[in-house]
Design a protein around this nucleic acid. Sequence first.
DNA 1: TGATTGTTTGCTCCA
DNA 2: CAAACAATCA
Length: 785
Amino acid sequence: MEFLKGLNAQQREAVTHTEGPLLILAGAGSGKTRVITHRIAHIICSKHVAPSAILAVTFTNKAAGEMRERVAGLLENEGLDSQPTVSTFHSFCVRLLRRDGDGLARIRPGFTRRFSIYDDDDQLLIIKAAYRSLGLDEKDFLQYRAALSRISHTKNLKQTPQDLYRTATSKEQERLAALFEAYEKALHMANALDFDDLLLEAVRLLEHDEATREAWNRRLSYVMIDEYQDTNRCQYELMCLLSQSHQNVCVVGDEDQSIYSWRGADIRNILDFERDFPKAKIIRLEQNYRSTKNILSAAGAVVENNKARKGKKLWTESEAGDLLGLYPAFDAENEALFIADSIDKQLASHPDDAIAVLYRTNFQSRQLEEALRRYGRKYNIVGGFSFYQRAEIKDTIAYLRLSVSTADSVSLLRVINTPARGIGRTTVEQIEAQAREKGISLWAAIEQTIDGHQLSTRSQSSLVTFRNVIQELALVASAEPLPDLIKFLLDRTGYRKMLEQEKTPEAEARQENLDELITAATEAVERGETVWEFLDHAALVAEADAYDEKAAVTLMTLHNAKGLEFPVVFIAGMELGLFPHSRSMNSEEMLEEERRLCYVGMTRAQKRLILSWAKYRRRFGGGEQERSTPSWFLSEIPENLLVNLGPQEDTGEVDLTAERYDARQSARRNTYTGKAYNSLENITQFFSERGIAFNPPKPAPPPRPQPRQAPVIPPRPSLPAKPLPPPAAPPRRITRAGMTVEHPKYGKGTVVRREGDGENAKITVNFPQHGLKKLVEKYAGLKRD
DNA sequence: TGATTGTTTGCTCCA
DNA sequence: CAAACAATCA
């Protein structure tokens, strides 16, 4: 069979083992995408299975698109009339619910197939409203986000608010139950599903609606799931429900790359697969085709420190390659400049090498972007502020959602007074109270309020205007094509006018974004999509979907880098508190996940891998620079695989400071404070508008040649490589970052950072129960643990 | 009511 | 350093 050509023995086995449950443990870079695509092609061609009987699930829409293309490429000459279904779990569930979801109305009050999808901004608004209605305050209860995550967790355990009430043993648990109840009620009232619901309700639908379940089981005969290590319980159940009759499930994953437990991913899905499917066949792909030996051994050495793993050893036939670079920067700005400079040099000698700069948190991108801009380097950025998160886009989407579903209260609140039409806080509060009292939707409350003439004439007329606008939109929505609807909407609501009157460059940019939205809508219609599909798409596009492989330089978080590969990779900000993140330093499990994240990042690199950290970093925009400690992960890499790219320790700081001053001056001239524009064109335009020539500065930091080979390892953390229990020999300072301390009131916590010296030093401590607290050392009464 | 100004607070990671 | 929130004034 020609689909087996060029595959190694294990890969071939994985492709040809088509019947029954199959677990493929695929190490990083072991060719798993290849295996999946070839397996699909093999099933279709040699087993004569209709493509539509195959479902493949990927992690992002982008990955789904790529896989679809690759399969189509393989099957190009086969003259097939259908394509296999390749999608993410979430997209699949949305389609399922929109198509076959009617039966759900029996078990979910108020549900119709015209539901809205609420993203986390929407969720936040709901939870805030719930706090308000219960008279709770974020300050003396959980933070909104924490409450949401607790609720999400509870939902995924299939527990209801009533379950929570029943098991509640404290006031706090009762409050959480009440919040949960209010939150769920608000979603039901708005006929909205959050991301958890998409999966949960799809499972419930398949469980309760026998006809639908059987139809899907008849239709599908092979199910494949990629990135299986990052599936949650619900996705697992969905998989089981869809493959009940045939059990032809093939899952592909790598327990060392499980990095989404915070989102509910359950690593047991992969660790217990054999137990759940006793007849399962297991195939290991351990030959790595991506990275050099040095990169692979370094990454392996790091992840080896994890206990919760099955353990496997990747190997490669490739050469040793370069040593890994290590750059201890003076501060974050210097780090960014070093990276920009190294990229310049790299591209000068290897213009075709794609380069990725990876970091733990989105906010780090800022300084990196600035440095790249100053080098005049075009770059691609994944995440941060995505198109669909921009205010003007969300507003327009909210109008669209309202025009097809007036029940959508979050959208309603979002636009009820944008543009300003005289409906202020008090009016809105009145409507909300009315809705709460009568248990009706906000829209219904508005209609009642209008009919009852309960408001001042002014508010009354404003409200009538709003209602008329929405009714008119609904009318147009049912008659006109989507792009025309959007144009009409922007006109009729006065939204475009509002932007025009602003006359600022930002407002202009916003208008352009809206034009882009109209273009997107036009294209969607050309593809034959309905309004609903368009809105679903807007809700489900992922950060990673925006990644464009054509740009030479790509900036993204480590999470977004999953599944990708680059000849050259930088990982920035390898410091304690940042990576591993301070919020993940309190338990061994969380730390292991951070370590896996590090492993994922390192194994993205094919030829060169450069790690950096900054000795001083500002935590917030304004404040003081704070001293940082190198990441534990750095010291887990064998020294003989590293080469120091920074100046020598003793002489280094002086030069770096001088350089830093230079850089500051030049940055001061060149920085601007507008929105982060992502393309060089915009930046150049920005400067030309201001009459400043934009010339990429002379390469800034001088990583000078290394006289000796002996690498200078970053000052070893004076902490043991294992975080808990912590250190032994703090000199006269009572506390240091990374240390566990005990506070008389808050109990045990981990020191995250320290500012200042002596007994007046302020330290930030992370207490698992109480979150971050800033304490003055001499008053805090801390005891070393 | 709504615009303006002042003040505070916050940084995970994402479908 | 921003966005989000609060307070103030027109």
